[in-house]
Amino acid sequence: GSPLAQQIKNIHSFIHQAKAAGRMDEVRTLQENLHQLMHEYFQQ
């Protein structure tokens, strides 16, 4: 897949890990990143 698709997959797993660790501030930051990446992805 594209590097962007790979990045989106990575962030999904980072979010999963951050949630499991209870780091909600990190989850929020990652979700904002994910949102931006998704936006770029669909602009392609």
Rank of each mutant, 00 (worst) to 15 (best):
E40P: 02
A5E: 12
E32L: 10
Q43V: 09
R23D: 09
K9L: 09
E40V: 08
S2Y: 10
V27S: 01
A21W: 04
I8F: 03
P3D: 14
L37T: 01
L30P: 00
S2E: 11
L37M: 05
Q17S: 08
R28Q: 10
N10G: 04
R23H: 08
D25I: 02
V27L: 06
Q7S: 05
I8P: 00
P3Y: 14
I15H: 00
Q44D: 07
I8N: 00
M24Y: 14
L4Q: 02
E32Q: 10
A5L: 15
A5N: 06
M38P: 00
H39E: 11
Q17E: 13
A20V: 09
F42D: 06
M38D: 01
F14E: 14
L4W: 06
I8A: 01
Q43K: 12
K19C: 11
E40F: 07
R23G: 02
H12C: 13
Q6K: 06
H16E: 15
L34K: 00
A21K: 04
P3I: 12
Q17R: 08
H12K: 14
M24R: 05
A20C: 09
E26P: 01
Q36F: 08
H16G: 06
L37G: 00
A18P: 00
L34F: 03
I8V: 03
P3T: 15
A21V: 04
Y41Q: 04
K19V: 12
Q44G: 09
T29Q: 14
M38F: 06
M24K: 05
L34D: 00
S2K: 09
H39D: 07
G22I: 02
S2N: 11
N10D: 13
Q31P: 00
Q17V: 09
T29F: 10
N33R: 15
G1N: 13
A21G: 04
Q43N: 11
A21I: 03
S13G: 10
R28E: 08
F14P: 00
T29C: 09
N33Y: 15
S2W: 11
Y41P: 01
Q17T: 08
G22P: 00
Q6P: 02
N10T: 12
F14A: 15
H35S: 12
S13K: 15
A20F: 04
S2T: 13
F14I: 08
M24W: 15
K19E: 11
L37C: 00
Q31V: 12
E40W: 10
E32A: 11
F14S: 13
A18M: 06
Q31G: 04
L4N: 02
Q44M: 11
M38E: 03
L34C: 04
L34I: 03
K19T: 10
K19H: 09
P3A: 14
I8E: 00
S13Y: 14
Q6R: 05
H16F: 08
I11P: 00
F14N: 09
H12V: 15
R23N: 12
I8Q: 00
G1L: 13
K9T: 05
H35Y: 12
H39G: 06
E26V: 11
A20G: 04
I11H: 03
H12N: 07
Q31T: 13
Q6E: 13
G22Y: 02
A21R: 03
Q43H: 10
A5I: 14
Q44W: 09
F14Q: 15
E26A: 05
Q6N: 07
N10H: 08
Q36T: 09
R28S: 06
Q36S: 08
Q6W: 06
I11A: 04
A5G: 07
L4Y: 04
S13M: 14
L30G: 02
F14T: 07
A5V: 12
E26H: 05
G22D: 04
K9F: 07
R23W: 06
F14M: 15
L34Y: 02
K19L: 15
Q43G: 11
A20H: 05
G1P: 11
H12P: 01
L34N: 00
G1W: 07
L4H: 03
S2P: 11
F42W: 13
A18Q: 02
S13F: 15
G22C: 03
N10P: 01
H35V: 13
Q31S: 07
N10W: 12
L30V: 01
I15G: 00
Q17C: 10
N10C: 12
E40N: 06
V27P: 01
A21D: 09
Q36Y: 07
L30S: 01
Q17N: 07
I11D: 00
E26D: 08
G22A: 03
I8G: 00
S13D: 13
A5K: 09
N10F: 07
D25V: 03
Q31N: 05
H39I: 14
A5Y: 13
Q31I: 13
K19D: 04
E40G: 05
P3F: 14
M24E: 09
L30H: 04
R23T: 03
